[in-house]
Design a protein around this nucleic acid. Structure first.
Length: 589
RNA sequence: GGGGUGUUAGCUCAGUUUGGUUAGAGUGCCUGCCUGUCACGCAGGAGGUCGCGAGUUCGAGCCUCGUACACCCCGCCA
């Protein structure tokens, strides 16, 4: 029977008259008394099965038993529907199957969540009963699109001479970066493997080994707190190339993203993508992942208010801070209630307040308008290209707080007033990231990307005289790819010289000894004719989330974790037996 | 580590300015009727530890405190 199975969603008018066998689940059953309809669902779609108890009395008993989510094997003839019975909203709405036999392959209790519903089901329930949730159209679509994405990435990269090579999941722990998930070694008492945060070191080794183009659809693990766009285990399309330039990498990735978008959405996207430097992104959008689908850019105001008597501005400047502003054009929509809400909102980013002023009938009004001098008003009007009805929001504080405040407020306003065209796919490269950043509390430098990132050639010289003040002038050959304001990937040209690598380690406060303990195999390998190389990793889950317009990574991962890192279905993580712990020489507290 | 929102029937939610008799709706489920439905329809019915634990009160779904879980945000995520 199963050998000759047809699929519900693949039958059409051309199959009319054929006898077919279908296997699937009961989506809905409609018992009209004299006639019974069963919507049968399989991976491809839904087909209506009709049964006439008068003509098929032998099916009557079985029909009484059949309920939602029963698993059935049905045989019968494909028939065209009468004109008035056609359902235009259904893919198979012109045909139906008149059942001659129905076998119940398995029954089902009343499902706790309805598969065929548009109603929003609580996420905890969906995760607990994921096997039912995955039967829902939305999830099924995500899983299928995920497959399509992976297949088209494999085909494309293979065609560009990339080899798919696996790297170990059981790795050495490296304290730099995110927290590692640790795996105890039974054979080596008191020792631990770490699950990879990314295959970074191994893919560089592969370059040195001469596999000059590598890719992997790689599972990565980071033991950090979760968000709607962050899971403890996630998937990267990871790649690395030898003998390349930043432009070459960018071109290959643009080609990859283009075919992915074409495959999943049937859309053509324009190439090449926009490019913006990190410094410009921070200046204009306040974020290193700018959402450029709308305006309302941040404007520098420090010079205009250099002599301001307004205490908030004056003290911010005196403390070495800055002043920026954004304009929301439809200020009339911003009621007192919104102002209060946003004033509260920006406190999240450590802003002390949210100064604002309205521009109406050629004059400033409300908020801090009364503190503005004529010169300041004129300068504001010009720089912000103020139009009637606009409202200006200011931030004055340290650069970080100012950018965080206005960068996030800008997005918040755009969302609250629906000014973003959600059909746009806005890809942008962010280039020239700083190589290092200085942490005031720890009084040391940290790698912005990772310690193997190459500085721009022309900036290597500055490394000798690095200070917390000029650290930002040293740019890396590092780049992120951003889609609609979300980072979907990043990479860099790597350091291929032992000498430079050691120099960077010393700047990062990693002693030669320490570096040898942590990265000995890479440092050793670099000596043996390491080719210039670089690469990038794309967040597969995030790309899928954005392309399918889902709000969370959990909606594009078949079996995701909750915000506390638990799997509500399998109930991982869990306690383990004393015997297991004994074997590993581990004591719990 | 910190902040916010939520938790009431299987599911999605309402629950009244201000605490007051027997906690409601839609849907699902069960029973009956129904030969062209497609969110079938009609009639009837069952279904509740108001997350959990304390407290205030004559009286708590509602107020207070604690706690668990889910989601969102800050920190964190080279």
């Amino acid at each position: 029977m199963f050998e000759k199975r047809s699929y519900c969603g693949e039958l059409s008018k051309t199959d009319i008259g054929k006898n077919v066998i279908l296997a699937g689940w009961v989506n809905r059953k409609r018992d009209l008394g004299g006639i019974i309809f069963i919507q049968l669902r399989d991976i491809t779609g839904i087909l209506q099965i009709t049964v006439d108890p008068v003509k098929s009395p032998e099916l009557t008993n079985i029909l009484n038993d059949i309920k939602s989510e029963y698993c059935l094997l049905v045989s019968g003839a494909v028939k065209s529907r009468a004109k008035e019975a056609v359902n235009p909203d259904m893919m198979t709405g012109e045909i139906e199957l008149t059942a001659t036999t129905i076998e119940i392959l398995n029954s089902s209790p009343v499902p706790p969540i309805l598969v065929d519903t548009d109603e929003k089901i609580g996420e905890d329930l969906r995760l607990k009963f994921r096997f039912l949730d995955l039967r829902r159209e939305e999830m099924k679509d995500a899983v299928i699109k995920r497959h399509m994405l992976m297949q088209s990435a494999r085909a494309y990269l293979s065609s560009k001479r990339f080899l798919e090579i696996e790297t170990p999941l059981l790795n050495k722990s490296t304290p730099e970066g995110a927290r590692d998930f640790l795996v105890p070694s039974r054979i080596n008492k008191n020792m631990f493997y770490a699950l990879p945060q990314s295959p970074q070191l191994f893919k560089q080794i592969l370059m040195i080994s001469g596999f000059d183009r590598y890719f992997q659809i790689a599972k990565c693990f980071r033991d950090e707190d979760l968000r709607n766009d962050r899971q403890p285990e996630f998937t990267q399309i990871d790649l690395e190339m030898s003998f390349i330039t930043v432009d070459m990498i960018i071109e290959i990735i643009e080609g990859l993203l283009k075919i992915i978008v074409k495959e999943l959405l049937g859309k053509d996207i324009d190439m090449p993508f926009k490019r913006i430097t990190y410094d410009e992104a921070m200046a204009r959008f306040g974020k290193d992942a700018p959402d450029m689908r709308f305006g309302m850019e941040l404007a520098e105001m420090s010079d205009i208010f250099a002599k301001s008597d307004f205490k908030v501005f004056a003290s911010a400047l005196k403390d070495g801070g800055m002043i920026k502003a954004i304009v929301f054009p439809e200020g009339g929509k911003i009621s007192r209630k919104y102002i209060d809400e946003y004033t509260e909102y920006v406190k999240i980013f450590k802003a002390k307040g949210l100064p604002y002023a309205r521009f109406k009938d050629g004059a400033f009004d409300g908020g801090i308008a009364k503190f503005l001098t004529e010169d300041e008003k004129n300068a504001l009007t010009g720089r912000l290209k103020l139009k009637d009805g606009g409202i200006i929001f200011f931030a004055s504080d340290s650069e970080k707080i100012v950018n965080d405040t206005l960068g996030n407020l800008r997005i918040r306003l755009a969302n609250d007033f629906n000014i973003i065209d959600l059909n746009i796919l806005d890809f942008v490269w962010v280039t020239d990231f700083p190589l290092l950043e200085y942490n005031i509390e720890d009084k040391r430098y940290y790698a912005m990307h990772h310690p193997f990132t190459s500085p721009k050639k022309e900036h290597i010289a500055i490394l000798k005289n690095i200070t917390p003040d000029n650290v930002n002038d040293i740019k890396a050959q590092a780049y992120d790819i951003v889609l609609n304001g979300v980072e979907i990937g990043g990479g860099s040209i790597r350091i291929s010289s032992t000498e430079l690598q050691n120099k960077i380690f010393s700047l990062l406060g990693i002693s030669e000894e320490e570096a040898n303990v942590k990265f000995s195999f890479l440092l050793e390998a670099l000596k043996y004719g390491a080719p210039p190389h670089g690469g990038l990793a794309l967040g597969l889950d995030r790309i899928l989330m954005l392309l399918l317009k889902r709000n969370s990574l959990r909606d594009v991962i078949p079996f995701p974790k909750t915000a506390r890192g638990q799997c509500l279905m399998s109930e991982a993580p869990s306690y383990v037996s004393a015997e297991q712990l004994d074997e590993l020489s581990i004591k719990t507290v």
